[in-house]
Nucleic acid binder design. Structure first.
Lengths: 220, 220
DNA sequence: GACGCGTATTCTATCGATAAAATCTCTCGA
DNA sequence: TCGAGAGATTTTATCGATAGAATACGCGTC
């Protein structure tokens, strides 16, 4: 993404800055799901006028992180068990093809990047603040060789939506589960290009994470 | 979609109106791919101020129909053979799972809706202005039973992007091809719930349409 | 003590104006 | 003839103000 480079060099437009910070706050749960997003309040908080905020909210609405009420402004997309279940289903099905095509197209550079991402993830414990980032990077590395940027982008969008739920129930524990082993198995199957096994493992990984999260959500 | 009903009852906000008209003009090719989109000009043309236009453009950028240049405004997403090829690939892979899940989940009501959509399409010739709409409705009916609204929405987004290319080369002919027979075969396989055959036929349908369009595009 | 209605307040949606940035144009010099 | 550069012009990004909705509040009534 050269856009990132450009953004870091050139002064990002206010709209872009606000968009980024808003997204971050939504993903980290600072702006809780369902919360009303008052334009003026956000504008002050981000040190900008109403127009950039409004524009950023429009984009985020198209991305599904924000909801637009007819003429009642915006609110953070609500989170519910039903929405979460649907999200997990969509991810399993979408990544089924994205992972398959990634495995079919992956070259040696992809393999190496995946090995590195897995190595980095392995060395961290879940409590480490760096774990989240390494985890995301690992999953992204798995899919990175899929020749369709469009589908990769869609998978990324879904990953972001899922991240919101992780923030909601961040203290969740995974008793009786060895997440590291799951990652290792997925990486191994991927590097061996065993498409059906890799897909099954990945889906199982998502589904069992989902089961724990769902429980935590329901309890809230 | 109850949203549609609401929109038709309540006065749609100016932003919503502009968004809709802009999307239409982009899909119909009135605003050609790559064309510069000057905010002021659009505002006058749609009888609105700059803010609603700008907001609508932001949304459309997130949907991929419009591109945002760092601080040089917006332009209609450019069309190229490479982009088109990528789009077709993404559609084939995405609809592979969406169609499969639609076939696995379709109930009698879905079957009937599909039969109706196919019937309507069959009765029209390609030159009829209503054909485009009936064609879109048929393809949508195929996927309508997929239990994931998210994935259906993504498929819809890709369909829109593809529509733009059809507008670019609208006079294209399909010599030596029986499109109606292809649709009939797809509908038949779908109703018989023969997943692999239906998927293969659908992908073949997209790929051969793509081949003709690609040729027309390259000639331009 | 709860409900419904009219008013006050809060927010949203939208406009018009403006500074900063980008692009175009025209002139001058090699 | 071509290219560089200053200046004029266009266009973007952003702000502050405002009309119109929507919501909250308080009062009187049953």
């Amino acid at each position: 993404m050269q856009a990132n480079i450009d953004e870091s060099l050139a002064t990002p437009s206010l709209t872009a800055q606000v968009h980024r910070r808003l997204r971050d706050d939504l993903l980290r749960g600072v702006l809780a799901p369902g919360a009303k997003l008052k334009v003026q309040a956000l504008a002050e908080s981000y040190g900008a006028g109403a127009s950039p905020v409004r524009e950023a909210l429009s984009s985020l609405a198209a991305e599904g992180l924000v909801e637009r009420l007819d003429s009642r402004g915006f609110r953070a997309a609500p989170a519910s068990v039903a929405d979460f279940d649907e999200l997990v289903r969509a991810r399993c099905w979408l990544e089924e093809v994205v992972l398959r095509e990634s495995l079919l197209a992956g070259d040696p550079a992809w393999e190496e990047a995946l090995v590195v991402a897995h190595w980095r993830l392995k060395r961290l414990i879940r409590a480490d603040p760096a774990w989240e980032g390494a985890h995301a990077a690992f999953h992204q590395a798995l899919l990175a060789a899929c020749p369709s940027p469009t589908l990769r982008g869609m998978a990324e969008t879904l990953r972001e939506r899922a991240e919101r739920y992780r923030a909601v129930a961040k203290s969740v524990a995974y008793p009786g589960r060895d997440v590291a082993a799951e990652h290792a198995a997925i990486a191994e199957a991927a590097l061996a290009r065993e498409v059906p096994r890799a897909v099954a493992l990945l889906q199982e990984h998502y589904r069992s994470t989902a089961a724990f999260l769902r429980e935590a959500l329901a309890k809230r």
